[in-house]
Structures are given as structure tokens and as C-alpha cells.
Design a protein around this nucleic acid. Structure first.
Length: 421
DNA sequence: TCTGGGGTCCTAGGACCC
DNA sequence: TCTGGGGTCCTAGGACCC
């Protein structure tokens, strides 16, 4: 009988900030998205104040001031490092582990001798992760990944479960009847509306939906969800991370960009950064897209456009990527708009050096890989951005905001915590 | 004034083939 | 008057996730 566990870190970014600043314990704390835009992680105290997931900071400014909510910019270098520590603790419990996201991992508990009492095993995992990393978690256990996710949700919202929920066949339906269908993994806003329209309100209603009807309504994705709720596994663990199919660097600007030169700098910067990511993953890309758009929320005149370009040969050379990104930009640029965001997306990724060549254009940049290697090494040793192409600009008026950032405690020598004694 | 970023998967529809 | 059928490949766009 298959058995999966989902271990999910509680308000992960806030928990990471608390590790290094115990003054945040017991206080309302939020961590902001890039550009200090929205609240993306909230402590229990912040949730109790009614701060919703994803709410823009400017809309809760008064509440933040009145209740002395502590605000942090996001610090992904720190969170990534802590996430790896949590994963390494969990992998001691089961060798079959999928690191699903920065704060969640699936574990395969099937055939584990110590899984005769799954709830006790879950409690042991929680306690060990907390003791060894300082990060609080919840554990959901069930016969499919979808049910393990749902069990995790139940563990999170019901304090009596003490952070662990094992969904067993008997009593399952009663548990599902108490959960809104929107909490089911794979049911987002659009699917929710379609389900509600035919009277499906709870997770149990969805479990009992005819799979063919589910397919008509929600494509094969919804059909699989229904089957997983019925204990039929449609999704196995992905033990080895698959090579990425796409990589993107997109950013909102710290303030609107109206000037073409500034936009060219930003797009160059993103393309060069995307090249770094490709080289780190030892991949080339064959297809590049660039997009620019105005603010989608305010009353500024709207404009949004993108252009995709096939590279003559797959490449990860930043100069090549910058060249084509600027080419794409030239074809979508319109004067007179207040641009809020731009990005470069790379598709058709292949292992570096294995892509289909081009009879007429094999190595247009000569010793490009040696040059990129030197740049990458300098930036690794001296810090990101030590050397870059001049096309990416020097002043960078458009750079994003991070007014409340904590130090990169575990990933920058200059940011190591100092101890006075 | 101020609203994130980076992914995956699926489908419809057009282009093209014989 | 009356103009096929079946297949693949590609891409854009929509849905979802954290």
C-alpha cells in the first residue's frame, strides 16, 4: 500500500527570519515579495491581524504602523540555504524524497519499517527538523500525494492535531466533507468557479464527482485530482529533479521606466543574468522571448508586448542573449508609455553543447565560453555583479527596491552574525 | 506614490504534410 | 452544384503551483 508524507514548513520565510532575530518571536511579522510589493509570508500573529496572503504593502500601511508589524524584504539566499538544511534532515527518514518547493518535500513512506505507525513517524520528523534546524513544520500523510497535501492542510488549521494528520481510509469521507474544495491541490480560482457552478463545494463532493465529468470540466488535470482523492495514485515522486525546460528573469521596476536607454539596460541585465543561470545549469537555450508591459493595476495607458526569437544556434553566451534580447526589444518598444515590468524568458533548453548546430553559423562568438567562464568565476568569488556588460547600465535607476532586507547570514562572509561576549 | 517571480502542464488551433 | 481525411508539429494562451 503506497503511503506518502508531505512536510511543509510553517510560514517558512518568517520562520527563517526568526532564526537569526529572536525578537521576532511572538510578534506579527511579514516578509515581502520582490520589490517590497506584497506580503508573501505571514506569522500566525500577522494572520490573526487579518493580513491576507499576497496583499500589497501599501494597502496595509496603517495596520502595520498601528500594530507594529515587523516587515522584512525577502532574502532568498538565506531561505534557500535553510531549505537545504531541512531537506537534509528529512532525507534521513526516507531515501525516497522529492523536494517539491522551497518549503515543502514529499517523502515515500511505503515499505518503511518504521511506518507501521505513520502518525508517530510524522511527529518524529517534526520534532527532529525543529530541533536540528529551528524550523517548525506540519506533516500530512496519505495514500496519494493529493491526499497527503490535503492532510497537511488539515494538520495546519486544526491545532488539536499537533501538526500531524494521517488520512486513513476509515473516516476519510467525514474529514473531506469538512474541507472546502478550494483547498484541494490543483483547484485554483477558475476551477473553483466551475465546480461551484455544478454544486461541488467540499473536497468530498469532488472525490465523488464522475471522473469523465471532471475531465470535461477541468481537463485531464482535474480527472487525475478526482482519482487521487479516491486513493488512486496518478503522480509518483520525482526523486531526481528534471532538467529545467525554461528559465526566466523578470522584474518589476523600482519606478516606472519611460526612457528607452533605461529599458535597454534593464533588458540587457536580465538577459545576462539568465545566461548566468543557464551556464550554472550547464544548459543552452534555443529560443528567447522578451516582454515589456505597463502597470496592470493603475490607470496608466496600457501596453503589453512580447517578441520571441529563435537563436541561430543554441547558446548560453550572455553576449548572444543580450544581442537578441535587444533585437526583440527594438521590435516591441513604443515611445510614450510608463513601463512597469520587463523580462527575458529562455525556452528550448538543452544540455550545453549538444544542441542542433547550424550549417552556416557554427561558432559566431569564437572563444565565448572561456570569456563567460572568467566572468562567472569573478562574480562567484567577488560577489554577483562584480563584472558585467556595459549594456546593462551603471546607474540602474530602475533597480528594484528592498528597503527592509535582513543580512544574508549564512551565504555571505560579510553578513555573518557577530557575537559579542 | 506604492500591487512578485519563476516555474509546469494542457489544449486549441493553425500550418503543413501526404 | 459538387473539392478529403488523417496525421504531426508548433505556438499562444490559460490554468495551476509555491
Amino acid at each position: 500500500m503506497p503511503l506518502f508524507a508531505l512536510v511543509d514548513c510553517n510560514n517558512f520565510y518568517v520562520s527563517c527570519e526568526r532564526l537569526f532575530d529572536p525578537r521576532l518571536e511572538g510578534r506579527p511579522v511579514i516578509v515581502l515579495s520582490n520589490n517590497d510589493g506584497c506580503a508573501v509570508s505571514r506569522s500566525a500573529e500577522a494572520k490573526a491581524l487579518g493580513i491576507k496572503m499576497g496583499v500589497p504593502l501599501f494597502k496595509i500601511k496603517d495596520l502595520v504602523n498601528a500594530k507594529q508589524v515587523i516587515v522584512r524584504s525577502s532574502n532568498y539566499a538565506l531561505y534557500g540555504d535553510i531549505s537545504a538544511r531541512v531537506d537534509s534532515v528529512l532525507s534521513q527518514f526516507s531515501p525516497r524524497i522529492e523536494n517539491y518547493s522551497i518549503d515543502e518535500s514529499f517523502l515515500d513512506l511505503s515499505d518503511l519499517p518504521c511506518a507501521s505507525d505513520p502518525a508517530a513517524l510524522g511527529a518524529a520528523m517534526r520534532a527532529t527538523v525543529l530541533q536540528w534546524t529551528g524550523i517548525p513544520t506540519c506533516v500530512g500523510i496519505g495514500p496519494t500525494k493529493t491526499l497527503a497535501k490535503l492532510a497537511n492542510h488539515i494538520a495546519k488549521v486544526n491545532p488539536v492535531m499537533k501538526g500531524v494528520c494521517h488520512l486513513k481510509p476509515d473516516g476519510l469521507d467525514a474529514m473531506l466533507a469538512a474541507v472546502n474544495v478550494k483547498e484541494v491541490w490543483g483547484i485554483g480560482g477558475s476551477y473553483l468557479a466551475r465546480l461551484n457552478a455544478i454544486g461541488v463545494q467540499t473536497a468530498l463532493d469532488l472525490k465523488r464527482l464522475d471522473p469523465v465529468r471532471a475531465r470535461d470540466l477541468l481537463t485531464v488535470v482535474g480527472q487525475r485530482t478526482v482519482q487521487e482523492l479516491n486513493g488512486i495514485a496518478c503522480s509518483d515522486l520525482e526523486l531526481l529533479p528534471k532538467p529545467k525546460q525554461a528559465t526566466a528573469v523578470t522584474r518589476s521596476f523600482g519606478k516606472p521606466v519611460t526612457d528607452r536607454q533605461a529599458m535597454e539596460e534593464a533588458v540587457s541585465f536580465y538577459a545576462a543574468r539568465a545566461g548566468e543561470k543557464l551556464r550554472a545549469a550547464q544548459q543552452d537555450c534555443g529560443y528567447l522571448s522578451v516582454f515589456i508591459r505597463t502597470n496592470v493595476f493603475n490607470k496608466d495607458p496600457k501596453y503589453s508586448a512580447s517578441r520571441s526569437i529563435r537563436l541561430p544556434v543554441p547558446s548560453n553566451d550572455s553576449r548572444m542573449l543580450v544581442h537578441y534580447a535587444l533585437h526583440g526589444l527594438a521590435s516591441v518598444w513604443r515611445e510614450g508609455y510608463r513601463y512597469a515590468k520587463a523580462g527575458v524568458i529562455l525556452n528550448e533548453l538543452v544540455p550545453a553543447g549538444t544542441g542542433q548546430g547550424n550549417l552556416f553559423q557554427s561558432a559566431p562568438l569564437g572563444k565565448s565560453s572561456a570569456m563567460m567562464q572568467v566572468m562567472d568565476q569573478l562574480n562567484k568569488r567577488m560577489g554577483r555583479g562584480t563584472v558585467y556588460q556595459a549594456a546593462s547600465g551603471i546607474k540602474r535607476d530602475w533597480a528594484l527596491r528592498a528597503d527592509y532586507r535582513s543580512p544574508r547570514y549564512t551565504s555571505r562572509w560579510t553578513d555573518l552574525p557577530k557575537v559579542k561576549c
